[in-house]
């Protein structure tokens, strides 16, 4: 591995004197966008790269080198949509990856893998959770319901039917998470009015922007779900 080196780099900001551009408003950029530089030539501090920029990157996991590589597989029985699955799992497997990669239950979606979008929402003992941040091995004894478990045969769950009717989606990718979340939202009693629905559905991002239609769908479905609200 090469060693660190010190480098003083020629000023990349240097511009010819009396450049007419100097007098107009420039510039946005990733870094200076907010301060429109009137004088670009004034920013001529030499850029020195410190050792951390240089190199040597044990960045990506130096300490992991000493870590135990091996994986102790864990036997678990999980109850998903009423069916019991006997599984031998790498404990690192998230519930989401278990569903999608091992059980072909691809209805639960991966939109961020970090609990930031809600596309992976499933019902765990009736409560909505992010399956991407849940380790599958920790769920023995729990009841897991995914989007595939909501309909009764060909009969859509009222929430599913309402999403179709109100066009509560476009691309459909956040939709299973939205629907699982919406079902829980109504059951929790957090769907009393538009403002409450909006707030309590904010853990499910929809980049297509179907939010107003999602609110309409939930309002319709809440009356058909037989939940006292």
């Amino acid at each position: 591995m090469s060693d660190e080196f010190e480098a003083t780099v020629p000023d990349p900001h240097a511009s010819p004197p009396n450049d007419p551009l100097d007098d107009i408003l420039i510039f946005g950029s990733v870094e200076t966008r907010r301060r429109f530089l009137k004088k670009v030539a004034g920013t001529s501090a030499a850029l020195t790269l410190g050792p951390h920029l240089m190199g040597l990157s044990d960045l990506q996991g130096a300490s992991a080198i000493t870590t135990n590589h091996s994986t102790t597989m864990v036997d678990v029985q999980l109850k998903i949509n009423g069916a019991v699955h006997k599984l031998r799992l790498d404990p690192r497997t998230s519930l989401l990856d278990l569903l999608r990669e091992h059980l072909q239950l691809t209805g639960s979606k991966k939109g961020c893998d970090h609990g930031q979008c809600g596309a992976c929402t499933v019902l765990l003992n009736g409560r909505r959770v992010n399956s991407c941040l849940t380790l599958a091995v920790a769920l023995e004894g729990d009841e897991i319901t995914t989007i595939e478990g909501l309909a009764q045969g060909d009969q859509l769950h009222p929430m599913q039917a309402a999403f179709v009717e109100h066009d509560g989606f476009q691309c459909g990718y956040c939709t299973p998470g939205q629907i699982c979340s919406a079902v829980a939202c109504v059951q929790e009693g957090h769907a009393k009015d538009d403002a409450q629905i909006r707030e309590w559905m904010s853990g499910n991002l929809c980049r297509c922007g179907a939010y107003p239609n999602i609110v309409d769908a939930i309002k319709e479905a809440r009356g058909k779900m037989g939940v006292a609200s």
Binding site: G118, T121, R127, V129, N130, L133, S181, C185, W200, S202
Partner: peptide, 9 residues
């Protein structure tokens, strides 16, 4: 804080 799903966990 967070979202209803995260708060459930």
């Amino acid at each position: 804080g967070a979202s209803p799903q995260l708060r459930n966990l």
